[in-house]
Design a protein around this nucleic acid. Structure first.
Ligand SMILES: [Mn+2]
Ligand SMILES: [Mn+2]
Ligand SMILES: [Mn+2]
Ligand SMILES: [Mn+2]
Lengths: 238, 238
DNA sequence: TACCATTTTTAGATTAATCTAAAAAATATT
DNA sequence: AATATTTTTTAGATTAATCTAAAAATGGTA
C-alpha cells in the first residue's frame, strides 16, 4: 500500500512504521481530552496540553492521519478523536506511564510529586516485554501513586466507587484514594497536611460561609481544609 | 554568547541546551572508539557504529561542536575525540546503560542477551536522581550482566585483573567474568554451553591444530571450545 | 614524485516537528 | 442578519537528523 504525501511524493505505508514520541504524546492528549469532555478534542486544547501552538497541532494531526491511518478521526474544524486502535495505543501509554510512576515510588523511593515528569519520558520506551515484566515485578498494581487506575495489558481499567471530598456527607468518614489535581505543588501541600493515600478523613463540620471543612484526620488530628483542596481529593467511603 | 551557524544565521548558545539522543549516541561512539584504539575516532568508524553514513557523521560532529563547544575535539580529516567534559557525559551514559541492563537482568529476569537494545533507549532518560536511586536500589553494582564495569557517579571504573580464555595457561583454572563480544547470538550460544558468568573453567588441553580447547566446566563437565569462543571470554584466575 | 584508492567533506535533498503571521471558518454578540 | 471575536487552518520558515552524489583531501605504492 502507498499513500500520497505532500508534493505528490509517495511513500510506503510500512506496517512497522513506528509511532514517534511526539505522535504518542498527541495521541495521549487526544485520548484524555475525549475522555474528559466526551467530545472530539479541540486543536487549542491539544496545543495547551502539548505546550505547542494550534498550528503545530493541525500539522501533527495531518501527519498522523497520513502516516498512520486508522488511529485518528479528524474533520476540519471539528476536532480530533481516536479510533479503537488509537485508543489501544493511548491506553497502553497510560499503562506504561502509571506503571513507571509506581515503580519510582514503590521501588526507588521517589515521592508522588516527583514522578510524573520522569514517567512522561519512560512511557515512550518501546518494549512490550519490559512493561509486562515491570507489571509483574510490581505485583500487577491496580492503581498508581496518585490513585489513578492502571489499565491491564488488555487495556481494561479497574473502576472504583470514589467521590470528591466535597461530596462526602457531613459526619461521614472516608479514606483518601486519589487526587484530581496531580500538580507537584498540590501534592507537596497534601504531604504537608498528611493527606496521603490511605489517610482516614471524617467531616466534622462543613462551613457554609466559604465551603471549607473541619475534618478529623486519622482519628486524631483536627484541621481545616479549604473547598479547593476538598474539590481535588478523591475519597472512598468505608 | 552567539555562534555563527550555516547561512550566516546566529543562535544563542543556551547553557541549558540539552544534548539530544542522537548527539549522546555519537558521543558514546566516539568515546568507545577512542578508548579502544587510543586515537581519534574516524568518521567511518563512527558511522558504522551509528549505522549511518560518513556524511551524516561529519554533519553531526559539526553541529555538536557548534551547539556544545567544549565536548568534542575535531580537526578536518583528523577524526574526533572528546574533551574531559565530553568524556564525563559519555561515561555517565555508559553508567546509565549498564545500570539499566543490571536492573533488567537482576530485577525483571531478562536474560543477558535481551537487555542491550532496551538499555540503549533507557540510557537517554535524563534524570540524575533516577539513576542515583536505581544504583542504590541495585546495591551499587560494580559490573553489569556482561561483566563490564559500571562507572560510579564520579565516573570511576572498577578495574579487575582479567584475561581472555585464550591467554589462560594450560591446566590452570579460572572463572568466567565477562565477554568481549556481547552480541545476542554469542550470548545465547554461551547460555547453551552453560558458560555463564561465574562458571569455573579449567583448561585440560590446548589443541595446537586449530587453537581449540578441551576444558572442564564447573569441575564436572568436559567439552571443547573453539578458539573464537575463547577469544571472546574474559576469565579471572583463582 | 605521481598516481590511485580510500576516506572525509561538501552540496543539495528530504522528513519530522516545531514556529509566526495571515487567511478562513466557526461561534458569539449585538 | 450583520458584525465582532475566537478558533482553526494554511502558508512559509526554521532546525535536527538523516540521505546520495560529487568533490576534495589523505595516504600508500609504483
Ligand atoms: Mn510523554
Ligand atoms: Mn499518575
Ligand atoms: Mn542509545
Ligand atoms: Mn553490557
Amino acid at each position: 500500500m502507498v499513500f500520497l504525501h505532500k508534493n505528490n511524493k509517495f511513500y510506503k505505508a510500512n506496517i512497522m512504521n513506528p509511532i514517534s514520541k511526539a505522535e504518542e504524546n498527541h495521541l495521549k492528549a487526544i485520548f484524555n481530552l475525549c475522555e474528559e469532555f466526551s467530545k472530539p478534542a479541540s486543536t487549542n486544547a491539544i496545543a495547551k496540553i502539548m505546550k505547542t501552538k494550534a498550528a503545530s497541532v493541525t500539522a501533527m494531526i495531518k501527519r498522523l492521519s497520513e502516516k498512520h491511518p486508522a488511529l485518528v478521526n479528524h474533520q476540519k474544524h471539528k476536532g480530533a478523536s481516536l479510533t479503537e486502535t488509537g485508543k489501544k495505543i493511548a491506553t497502553n501509554l497510560i499503562r506504561k506511564h502509571r506503571l513507571w510512576e509506581t515503580f519510582l515510588v514503590e521501588k526507588l523511593n521517589f515521592s508522588w510529586d516527583e514522578v510524573h515528569e520522569i514517567a512522561e519520558e519512560l512511557e515512550h520506551i518501546k518494549a512490550e516485554k519490559l512493561i509486562d515484566r515491570l507489571d509483574e515485578f510490581l505485583g500487577r498494581p491496580k492503581f498508581d501513586p496518585h490513585g489513578d487506575p492502571i489499565p491491564d495489558a488488555k487495556g481494561n481499567f479497574t473502576f472504583r466507587k470514589q467521590i470528591l471530598l466535597t461530596e462526602l456527607a457531613a459526619h461521614k468518614t472516608a479514606v483518601v484514594v486519589g487526587v484530581m489535581d496531580d500538580s507537584p505543588s498540590f501534592l507537596q501541600y497534601l504531604d504537608k497536611l498528611n493527606l496521603v493515600l490511605g489517610a482516614k478523613v471524617k467531616i466534622l463540620e462543613r462551613i457554609e460561609y466559604d465551603g471549607s471543612n473541619r475534618i478529623l484526620l486519622n482519628d486524631k488530628q483536627e484541621q481545616i481544609l479549604t473547598n479547593k483542596v476538598c474539590q481535588n481529593l478523591y475519597v472512598k467511603t468505608l
